[in-house]
Design a protein around this nucleic acid. Structure first.
Lengths: 348, 348
DNA sequence: GCCTGAAGGTGAATCGGTTCATCATGGAGG
DNA sequence: CCTCCATGATGAACCGATTCACCTTCAGGC
């Protein structure tokens, strides 16, 4: 068990293959890339030599000449969130299908770290970058990136930025969630979680206010709670809401993770989601169906999001001059038990 | 919004920087790598030129010469499993701290795809490979890899393979889980989930049988159910178990994901985990605490696993001749409600 | 005034492929 | 028998860095 490691092998290069096959390096290269200029017998000799010597192609060396690395960078905020894990998985699969590799980095939603990671990606010379920008990212940074590399943005749409992007239909999703609550009879509905600087949250909040307005309900800022996008965040938020003079009867949450926290908080307060209080989330992470009661949520298909981002990137790389495209994934309300129950209605 | 994409910029190379600073390419290179052979004024001129021209270092070109790519490959079975997502996240962070990048690929536990991904990693010339081998992986493949590149294996320990590896203490973890069940009074305990060819499962199963033996309980093969590592797998398994003549009163599950399925299945059968039946999982994924009732489980610290794998890799790269090391992460039984309740005891 | 050595730079080879312009060969056509 | 062309193969430049051996200067010592 203490066997020492062998020294790194001396590599077999294309030159060795060429020598073994009695051809020039140029011929060997052409043979491997299936050029029609090389005769069948010669090609076979080269392939045999490859086999015999155990040659492995050096993509890195090749890319120096061809200026293509077949590598795509993905910078995401945090992989612990199952939503992002699914998204990453989707992107990886789609890229692998087209023989691109994925270089992964996380920014922890921190501008400095994001800047470092972007820099690294540039130095690694990725062919393109898929980015889920950290909160408060300057459009200027993105504009600069865009000038150098194909760029696909993950959720936020920066107005006036000519970048491909893929996101979800936050507006319709939010509207559907609220309509559902209205139909159940809710009037005081909290908006829970996330921070004001998050672009996605801004869009959902806007749509929330719009929906209220259409119902002739005024916007009550005390029902709108900031919090980290964690279970703890939701847990704390619902406690704050329940202490209000006139507490809400329902909560529309910025994400499923927060909704889970809200449900935990309700239970701690001896209330039950779907019975005493309605809870709706956003994302439809796999756990949403498992929770007890099942979480009503806006489905976001994270895997599809990742696949589409990859697809958009591949498209951009193969046809750089196409007009900018953004894919808005349709959102769907998945009704489960956390909202289905009728509500004990406080007099109002 | 239809702004066309700019053509890829013509790159600023070190030569351009050198010209602008009025020095040779060699000097520019040395200046940037902080060689003491370059005087301070010259270094500053170079740095200014870098700034002025917007030069970005080309790691890819450099690596051709230096034979280090500062890139580590990670091949994992599937990123949708939160356990693996956490692990990946841990590895990525640790690597990033040391300015290595992570190239990610998934094998879907498929031997062919794994082979392709390994090949890709070799072609990309990663400095090292962290691999969670697919089931039924030939030791020979690993041995071959090992001869070419630093390799860190993820969970399985292949006997006689001189590779660094990191895994968990499956034996002790399993033993603790079973002892806990014995203390609660259980005698008929099912082993649920996974497939026979999975090395990790083999170890846990062995330890399970060992524990039974120590208690003088015979091994009953009908209590040992194969299944995919999914919620559905657990769901189906518990149904099968409940139909037995003499059903078990507890289930020790191969992973949390399966345990969740078991709990769902129980609920569908109008039973409640922690009241009518004891359920124990393995992994302690974040959802385990949120589930209702909370899942008793063996904690596996996936993030720590990933961090340690990265650490081992960095160690191997910097000191290739160190003896082989394997890190076994201690396992801990986290007791929550799914097992805490006493059991309605069938006469036996 | 000459020699020595340190300090600071530089030319050129190198890493492992790709690619283009060029060359050798041999068969067809006149 | 000579010319021409198609076919197949090759030499050498190139991509963008690193690195080694060598070169120039100049200060200091005798």
């Amino acid at each position: 068990m203490t066997a020492p490691r062998q020294a790194r092998r001396q590599k077999v290069t294309l030159q060795h293959v060429a020598d073994a096959a009695n051809v020039s390096k140029a011929t060997a290269s052409l043979a491997l890339s299936k050029s029609p200029r090389i005769s069948q017998p010669t090609r076979l000799r080269v392939l045999e030599a490859v086999e015999a010597l155990g040659y492995v192609y050096n993509q890195r060396a090749a890319s120096l000449r061809t200026q293509r690395s077949y590598t795509i960078g993905l910078i995401i905020r945090d992989l612990s969130n199952p939503f992002n894990a699914e998204l990453t998985s989707g992107a990886e699969s789609r890229l692998a299908e087209h023989s691109y590799s994925l270089v992964l980095a996380t920014s922890d939603d921190d501008l400095d770290k994001q800047a470092r990671m972007v820099q690294t990606m540039m130095e690694r010379d990725v062919d393109g970058l898929i980015l889920s920008p950290a909160s408060r990212t300057e459009p200027d940074l993105l504009r600069k990136l865009l000038a150098h590399r194909p760029l696909v943005l993950l959720h936020p749409y920066y107005a006036g930025l000519a970048a491909d992007c893929v996101g979800m239909d936050d507006d319709k999703g939010t509207a559907r969630a609220l309509d559902h609550l209205f139909q159940l009879g809710h009037r005081r509905i909290a908006f829970v979680g996330g921070f004001a600087e998050q672009a996605t949250r801004q869009r959902r909040l806007r749509s929330y206010r719009e929906s209220l307005r259409r119902q002739g309900i005024g916007f009550d800022p005390t029902l709108c709670i900031d919090s980290p996008v964690t279970r703890q965040g939701g847990y704390d938020a619902i406690h704050q809401l329940l202490r209000l003079q006139e507490p809400p009867s329902a909560a529309y949450c910025y994400s499923d993770v927060i909704a889970f926290g809200v449900m935990l908080g309700l239970r701690a307060a001896r209330l039950e989601a779907g019975v005493d209080f309605a809870v709706i989330g956003f994302d439809d992470v796999p756990e949403a169906t498992l929770w007890h009661p099942g979480l009503t949520t806006v489905s976001a298909d994270p895997r599809g999001l990742g696949e589409n981002a990859a697809q958009l990137m591949l498209r951009r790389i193969s046809q750089p001059d196409l007009p900018v495209k953004s894919i808005i994934m349709p959102s769907k309300l998945i009704v489960r038990e956390s909202s289905a129950a009728p509500v004990k209605w406080p007099a109002s």
